[in-house]
Design a protein around this nucleic acid. Structure first.
Lengths: 222, 222
DNA sequence: TCTACCAGACTTGTATGGTAGTATGGAAGT
DNA sequence: ACTTCCATACTACCATACAAGTCTGGTAGA
């Protein structure tokens, strides 16, 4: 069941750093250092270095030779493009879903909706966030577009640093939930036009978040 | 002008390995090894290792701990999804281009078309391939979607291993060129519907290549 | 006071040795 | 002939030492 019987030091460090960057626990612009991180994690520089390489490729850190490694500033252009890509791909996929969608995957969506209602009742924001992600992922899986979702997730690393604020403004969840419900109905009815419109509106919400974050933390941005 | 005054050993090794994998010079399934590669490139194992990490993240190689590193087999599902993503994003972008496109970037497209005619006359396939890539990239740049193009390029790594065969069947170029011409006209006229249709057809051509390659080299595929 | 310079404390880049897990082939036992 | 076991030769993983570039602060000289 466990693909990695012994999780490597590298993957541990990588996962932890990535999480901290996405959390804004390590804010944009923070100076990292191989040595410092290796001490913090209790490993040698090698696995830390290789984590930096991976994070650098994803654009989450910037490695300047002989100068230092820094958590990347949020690039508004990159964020907007990430939103654009996600919008195009999610709309295309949900149109596919309206043409044909497996029954058991539809069951999963319905279960997910029920869990969303429960989480909203409990005001469990963290759980709600996970369910939101799972909801979208499930649509991709129903259309055999697992890898496409994976690419979106990578792009979303940048988008998500901006979206963090919404987590605290939980009054938005009701709106998002009703959109999720509309999507499921549209897929069930095969109404691609409706699904497309709802998804487009659904994904346009994140634009405003960035403006708010930018105003509050101007030095986080490029 | 040179972003890297002294190209690092790592980036050299990475670029070379990547090129060889995309060339099929290193066919899918080939066993690599840190030691062997380090000897071949005349560097230590460290930069080779870090190249493996990068290539692994792109899905071009598969690193199995304590077992070995292998050039990834071509995953048909991944290839189809790459094609799907590219289609959706290119169609969305060319529709944007029809709404608004900078005059100087339009000049570049026209220049590119002229060079394409010259290269076809010379039967210069390599040049033609480069111009084709530049053509599409220019459309993205005109719409301020540089990063989106970069993501497509990464996905295309998988797609391109399948597209290699087309390079030798140069009789296709005439068809591709006329489609390019139609796209430029459509952008000039702001005819998003036409542009979308042409682009869709344009990008559907690569599907057949995979079938051919798969038939000839079944052991290259997953 | 201001400038030029240099020493030292950083940084990442590269090389190398040792460790642990894995595949393989041959020998010993059935 | 067939199976089991083990020595051996791999593999990637990690730790560590050294190399080379960069920044900083203090100092000597004008």
């Amino acid at each position: 069941m466990d693909s990695n019987r012994a999780p490597s030091a590298r993957s541990e460090v990588y996962a932890k750093l990535r999480e901290q960057i996405l959390n804004l626990e390590l804010p944009p612009g923070t100076a990292l250092s191989e040595k410092e991180s290796s001490l913090a994690f209790g490993v040698s520089r090698t696995p830390v270095r290789e984590s930096f390489v991976r994070l650098g490729q994803e654009g989450l850190v910037q490695v300047l030779p002989q100068r230092g490694t820094f958590v990347s500033l949020i690039d508004p252009e990159l964020v907007e493009e990430a939103r654009f890509m996600r919008e195009q791909l999610e709309r295309a996929v949900i149109r596919l879903a309206c043409a044909s969608f497996p029954a058991d995957t539809m069951k999963q969506l319905e279960t997910n909706l029920r869990l969303q209602r429960e989480s909203m009742a409990e005001s469990n924001d963290k759980r709600m966030f996970e369910l939101d992600e799972a909801f979208h992922r499930t649509i991709f899986e129903g259309c055999s577009k697992r890898n496409t979702w994976a690419v979106i997730q990578q792009m979303n690393a940048h988008l998500n640093r901006s979206r963090l604020l919404r987590l605290v403004s939980d009054h938005e969840w009701n709106h998002l939930y009703s959109q999720h419900e509309q999507m499921v109905s549209a897929i069930r009815d095969g109404d691609a036009g409706l699904a497309d419109r709802v998804m487009q509106e659904h994904l346009s919400l994140s634009i405003r978040d960035q403006a708010v974050l930018r105003e509050r933390f101007p030095h986080y941005f490029k």
